[in-house]
Design a protein around this nucleic acid. Sequence first.
DNA 1: ATGGCCTCCTTTGGAGGA
Length: 257
Amino acid sequence: MKVATWNVNSLSVRLPQVLDWLAANPVDALCLQELKLSDDKFPVAALQEAGYHSAFFGQKTYNGVAILSRSPLSETVRNIPGFEDEQARIIAGTLQGEDGPVRIVNGYFVNGQAPDSDKFVYKMRWLQALRDWLHSQLEAHPRLVLLGDFNITADDRDTWDPEGLRETIHHTTAERDELKALLALGLHDAFRLFEQAEKSYSWWDYREFAFRRNRGLRIDYALVSEALKPQVSACVIDRAPRKNERPSDHTPVVVTF
DNA sequence: ATGGCCTCCTTTGGAGGA
């Protein structure tokens, strides 16, 4: 099974690029973040014509997540049960694989803006709620993959400027400790299960020719559960869509198991 | 250099992103 994640930064703007990418990369499921549209505007028909079912959880202007899949998802969940949230950040569902069901959890993690801001407090609360919920999800669904835009660099390898950006947003010890706590539930960063090129990133600022200079961050991840880990055969970042006209600032990450 | 870019909004500049 191939599952991918891509923060598209507006599905309205990026739909043609999503369709092109799916035609060239026929994955079993594609997790999208930052749809920036309400559910009534979701392009169900265009994706259906491309051969994909859609499970989506949108909101106007900001946030919004979806899972596109070759076969329909079951047991879908929107946002973290029991955690009051105005923002659409989580969608989960189960796909039938050759070796049994696979639970797919797609997250658009909170940005947090700055470590001294209210948004950072919300980020920490959200991360703790996610961890509590995932603990029970892993018990119910041993074959689980958590994908999305995590908005955290796991360690210094995941940032173009570890010294200059130390303890700034996406780089704080508090955020990295939360990611470590997620991994401690029994999840593994699929990208790091394999030999990877140095300076591998999944996001580049639109400003300062950041992509051309490879000044980026790796903040988009696929974490696999213990049960899935032995079956993972690859995890790659596909930089190609970042070279498109009018690209998203993020690029897809694909995991194969 | 308190920036540069992109997307959205019953827009026309500010918020949010990362």
